[in-house]
């Protein structure tokens, strides 16, 4: 029997709920965590200096600046720049009020990956846009029936996520290379020697955490096997799908750990480069 004539309950207003728990705590923590990262990473990316540590023979490159596409004019070369000095057309296009920073040329890729990530989407829709503020909590009334979700522009663009995934996988290789050469220290005779510094360990943990996050991506899970109904048992594709699914189950944890650590790695390199920290050689 249809009861279509009975009206639906009136939606509750912003933040109205019968919930008695501290429902606001999680979105507040997410908002604070994301804002702290956004503010710090933006500031760090705009500096254009102190992203490389060579003191004490170290070879640490901040992940915010890796891959480093070009040297920074007026600064000594780090030896990491893929294409040497920036071309004149790039310098002429660069806004005069922002110092030249290689980070700004590459951070859109990992930033886009995180911005379109399924976990982050759900988290920032709640924490930043109150859509909804939390489960079973009223949201701003202005959206009402005009709600578009991810079905229409602009959020339909979130479907680009898998293309950012391809770039993010490439970044893991680059950051793994940076971690390996963080064990390569300049020797007194002008050559290179194997060594371990605190920074080497910090730079090693970074691609491990980023790998745990990136390889647990929902899009990768789909592409590697989820798109099929029949994967069979025991084959390479089934094993890969199971491994990605295993990481995917803790995607939120990997997302936060890797986010924190990539920021901390830049902070460590920056503080050492600015002379506030001294990198301790363990070996």
């Amino acid at each position: 029997m249809s009861r279509a004539d009975i009206p639906l309950p009136q939606p509750r207003g912003m933040a109205q709920t019968q919930r008695t728990d501290t429902w606001w705590l999680q979105p507040l923590a997410v908002f604070s965590g994301f804002m702290a990262f956004i503010v710090y990473s933006t500031w760090a990316a705009l500096q254009g200096e102190h992203f490389f540590l060579s003191a004490g023979g170290a070879n640490y490159l901040s992940p915010f600046y890796s891959p480093q596409l070009f040297n920074v004019p007026g600064q000594p070369p780090t030896g990491h720049a893929w294409f040497g000095d920036p071309p004149s057309w790039l310098l002429s296009l660069w806004p005069s009020f922002i110092p030249f920073s290689p980070a700004l040329l590459i951070l859109w890729a990992p930033g886009g990956f995180r911005f379109t990530c399924y976990y982050y989407r759900g988290a920032y829709y709640k924490a930043f846009w109150a859509d909804p503020p939390s489960c079973a909590v009223g949201e701003p009334g202005f959206r009402g029936k005009k709600y578009r979700g991810e079905a229409k522009f602009p959020l339909i663009i979130q479907n680009i996520h898998r293309y950012f995934l391809y770039l993010a996988i490439a970044f893991i290789f680059v950051l793994s290379y940076d971690a390996i050469i963080a064990y390569k220290f300049a020797a007194a005779d002008g050559g290179w020697t194997f060594g371990i510094g605190i920074g080497s360990l910090i730079l090693t943990i970074n691609p491990i955490l980023l790998g745990g996050y990136t390889l647990g991506c929902h899009s990768l899970r789909h592409l590697i096997g989820g798109r099929k109904d029949c994967l069979g048992a025991g084959g390479a594709q089934r094993t890969a799908y199971d491994c990605v699914s295993c990481l995917n189950r803790k995607h939120m944890v990997w997302a936060w750990l890797s986010l924190f650590w990539v920021g901390f790695t830049d902070f460590y390199v920056r503080m050492c480069s600015m002379g506030y920290f001294t990198d301790v050689r363990l070996l």
Binding site: Y125, K126, A136, R148
Partner: peptide, 11 residues
């Protein structure tokens, strides 16, 4: 069926 309306709140 409006799959695109889901914004993954996981509620």
């Amino acid at each position: 069926h409006g799959l695109g309306y889901c914004n993954i709140t996981k509620c």
